[in-house]
């Protein structure tokens, strides 16, 4: 039996191996993804994002525990940064999710961002599809700790949950930050700390200013994840958002928009690799470089020449 079938029948080892193949972008990856694609689209994909140290892992751990208690199957993809210098990574999100290791309803996978800067890894979207095709009901993506512009998660998740904590700076920080524009749900975590109420107020003001057209009223929850406070309300909020998306028809339109982006991204990547390969094989490349060095021509004119030669007419 092949890997895909075994993974879909609940073989965790096959599932793990499949993810490795896709993560390493091995040649078989595309075949596997093609085989799994018809089985995707059922799961709710939930993105958990927020600054480093805001409690994303602990919160994810508690939310998933609650869903597992309700009999649901949950996949977690935890993305941590890859060192730009060595390509290595320390993936430590599991430290806060130890109790879930032995939960039969839960599968956790750590991913290094591997040079991608948007808070996810390049292949995170494909790993989501694998979990989706293996009949996980909910897929949680925990992003790299983000600051002000790492908003890739909106292209991967149906529901984006932004975790904030008290004490990160004044309200101007909040107005600047791109991550505030992407939340479907806000959680002010570590709510036992001083300043939590102020963060909630500031968020409320921000949201009021947004001039919302959508029918979804973005909720702001308070939680103290280590003490499991506020968790049930947040889980209910997540489920409610999915119901809203389905009933309003937004799920279809937003997923279609994302699909368009994804398709174009795949096309551009493929074209880019092929074209670059051909440019590198161009016999005159060295000659061009020497000419530019001698200032006989310039990079901009050479680029025009190179592309003109490559473009099929």
């Amino acid at each position: 039996m092949d890997l895909v079938q075994r993974a879909r029948e609940g073989d965790r080892r096959a599932l793990a191996r499949l993810i490795t193949v896709v993560e390493n972008q091995e040649p078989e990856a595309v075949d596997f993804l093609q085989e799994m694609y018809p089985h995707t689209g059922k799961a709710q994909v939930i993105g958990i994002t927020g600054p480093p140290g805001s409690g994303k892992s602990t919160l994810t751990d508690k939310l998933v525990k609650e869903l597992s208690k309700r009999g649901q199957k949950i996949g977690i993809i935890a993305v941590d940064p890859t060192s730009p210098f060595t390509g290595g990574a320390i993936l430590g999100d599991r430290v806060r999710m130890s109790d879930l290791n032995l939960d039969e309803n839960v599968y956790i996978r750590s991913m290094g961002a591997r040079g991608s800067l948007g808070g996810l890894a390049e292949t995170t979207n494909d790993v989501i599809k694998i979990l989706d095709a293996c009949d996980f009901d909910y897929i949680f993506i925990e992003t790299v700790g983000v600051g002000q512009s790492e908003v890739e998660i909106i292209n991967a998740a149906d529901t984006v949950l932004v975790v904030m904590v008290p004490g990160l700076g004044d309200d101007i920080q909040a107005i600047k930050a791109g991550i505030l524009e992407i939340g479907d749900i806000f959680v002010v975590n570590k709510a036992d700390r001083e300043g939590a109420n102020k963060v909630v107020l500031e968020l409320q003001m921000m949201l009021d200013l947004k001039g919302e057209k959508s029918g979804w009223e973005t909720p702001i929850f308070m939680s103290d994840a280590t003490e499991s406070k506020g968790i049930i309300e947040i889980v209910d909020g997540i489920l409610e958002h999915f119901t809203y998306l389905k009933q309003s028809g937004e799920l279809w339109t937003t997923r279609r928009n994302k699909l368009e982006k994804e398709l174009l991204a795949i096309v551009s990547k493929k074209l880019y690799t092929q074209m670059l390969q051909r440019v590198k094989q161009e016999k005159k490349l060295n000659e061009y470089l020497d000419c530019i060095m001698r200032k006989e021509t310039n990079p901009y004119s050479v680029v025009e020449l190179l592309i003109k030669d490559l473009m099929p007419r």
């Binding site: 965790r12 290595g88 430590g92 430290v95 290791n101 032995l102 599968y107 956790i108 996978r109 750590s110």
Partner: peptide, 24 residues
């Protein structure tokens, strides 16, 4: 240059094995 998954303290052999399999 390796990807290191770190589990934290006081893991049972069962937890370690489950993690090793999930993380391939």
């Amino acid at each position: 240059g390796m990807e290191v998954i770190y589990t934290g303290l006081r893991q049972t052999p069962e937890q370690i094995v489950a993690t090793a399999i999930q993380e391939d």
